[in-house]
Amino acid sequence: MVPKISVKNLNMTYDNYVIMRNLSFDIQQGEIFLIIGQSGCGKSTLLKYLLGLKRVSHQKIFYDGKDINSVINVPGFYGEKIGVLYQGGALWSSMTLAENVALPLETYTPLNRKEIEEIVTLKLSLVGLKGFENFYPSQISGGMQKRAGLARAIALDPEILFFDEPSAGLDSVSAKRLDDLILELKESLGITVVIVTHDLASIFAIGTRAIYLDVESKTITAMGVPHELLASSNDKNVIAFLSRGTKTVQG
């Protein structure tokens, strides 16, 4: 089967500084794929590459076997095929929550007003924000903004969902609820999920496969099912990361 997303020998840079080199991995249809690593190792940057927000040379990143550079210009790639939840939610601040969620629906679907309103209410209630339709992003808390961002990301039922640290800044109940929602979306709609995270609870609870980005060697030092990684990896940074970092402190 052609992988949903495939990355081949990707080098990530800012200006001339190399953040990570030689990244290669495949993400299969229906996976919950985790990108893990210490903060500052380049997880968000990798997400930017995968989303086409940072320019990349040809033959590095593929969606369904097609080069990303040709895919991102196809109408419907953004919004319909992929949805993104950013680290801080990234709601459009001049619009209410309802308008945020409704905008993609208005733009890309032939639905009428009433249906759009109903779908907006549905999506907001999925993330536990029913009744907040007419609030502006500045009027709700950071965690709520994030959940609203998720409602917007799933507005068009995309095939692939990207999350940048979804549970950071959420209380444990909301984080658990989010994990359940992600699992539910994957099970019922068969979507592929790519999550950047360092939340151990969700790593073990929902991840089907993970890659570990290592700051020191600047590349992937472990790849596999999270539980097995902890049991079988002999890389001390990976083990330290997956067992709450106690090992590194002792040096």
Binding site: G76, I82, Y86, Q87, A90, W92, S93, Y108
Partner: peptide, 10 residues
């Protein structure tokens, strides 16, 4: 990230 969000929403 609102501008990125615009872009990735198409």
């Amino acid at each position: 990230d609102e501008v990125d969000a615009l872009q990735t929403a198409g």
